[in-house]
Structures are given as structure tokens and as C-alpha cells.
Amino acid sequence: MTVTIIKYNAGNIYSVEYALKRLGVEALITSDKETILASDKVIFPGVGEAGTTMQHLKATGLDRLIVDLKQPVLGICLGMQLLCRASEEGNANCLNIFDVEVKRFIPHKHEDKIPHMGWNNIWKFQSALFTGLTLGDYVYFVHSYYVPLNDYTIAEADYILPFSAAIQKNNFYATQFHPEKSGKVGERILQNFINL
């Protein structure tokens, strides 16, 4: 089993590597196209800004590589948003695996602080990614933009409004939350992805 973590100009990709190591999986952080193409599983992490990150992906040709991947791919946080058609963040055109537009949270009342930061419940699981979890389990979120509910939604969360906690289409899986920072629940999700 080989797992690669796509290296690009995004912060905090090491925590994914560490989380996999705790599961006994040695992942490779790389931007080398051959290595990524040849691996069994690909993780597309990300903390950062959509517009600038898309520019970087285009400049390096990683954009075309990602959309052509055939093995299971897991996008995390910004990685999930970049797999969508477009994002309101920096008016970015993204990778268009998922034909959905990423929106910015609009607060309804003062208590609706942005970013949505901290532990929140997920439910309405529709994927093997969530095997072994309990409805309402808590995972860790940090984001100001969200993927609306759509045909690809495989788990929901609620902050200001119900939104996609995770989406899936064919071999592409993605979570808005950070499984690598979500304690035992997150470890189970990563293990489930590795087991796919």
C-alpha cells in the first residue's frame, strides 16, 4: 500500500502525515507526478486561500494531474473545496470534479462567528468512509467557506445552515473537516479511506 500526500503551497500538510503514521501507514509528501500517479491512495490536503492555491496548481500542472487520478483520492478542507467547480473565495475557478459552487458563510445572528471553528456533529452518513462511526460524532472544522448540500453529499453538518461535511463522486472523496485533527473519530475515517 502506497499513499501520497500532494505537496503544494498549502500549510499544515505534516499533520496528515503524522496522523497516518499513527495508523502505521508511511505516506510520502510529494509533488512528483509519477509518484502520485503510481500510488494506491492520494490525499489532497489544504489550509489556505482558494484563488492563490488554484493559480499554483495550474502553474505546476497539478490541476490536470488531480482530475485524471483513478485511485481513491481524499480531499481535506481546502482540498475539498478545490475539487468543486468554483469558489466564492477569490472568485476561483476550481477543478470541477464536483459540479457545485463553494459559498461563503453569511451570519444570521451575532453568535454566528466566522470561521466556523471547533468541534461539530456530523450525520446522514452515506459512505464506507464512515463505517464504525456513530451519528452525531464530533469532528474538527476550521473554515469560512462551505460546500452546499448537493447530490454528492455523503455526510452533513450544521452551522448557520446544513452543509456538506463530506462529498463523494466515483473515486473522489472529500471532507470539509480535518480527520487528521479529529481524535479517534478522525483516525477511524482515515483508516476507512486507507481500507477502501
Binding site: Y14, Y18, R22, Y140, V142, H178, K181, G186, E187
Partner: peptide
């Protein structure tokens, strides 16, 4: 800490 702990 980062290698050991799975919370932020």
C-alpha cells in the same frame, strides 16, 4: 506533540 497528538 504533532507526531503524537490527534487534536489541534
Amino acid at each position: 506533540v504533532a507526531a503524537t497528538i490527534s487534536i489541534p
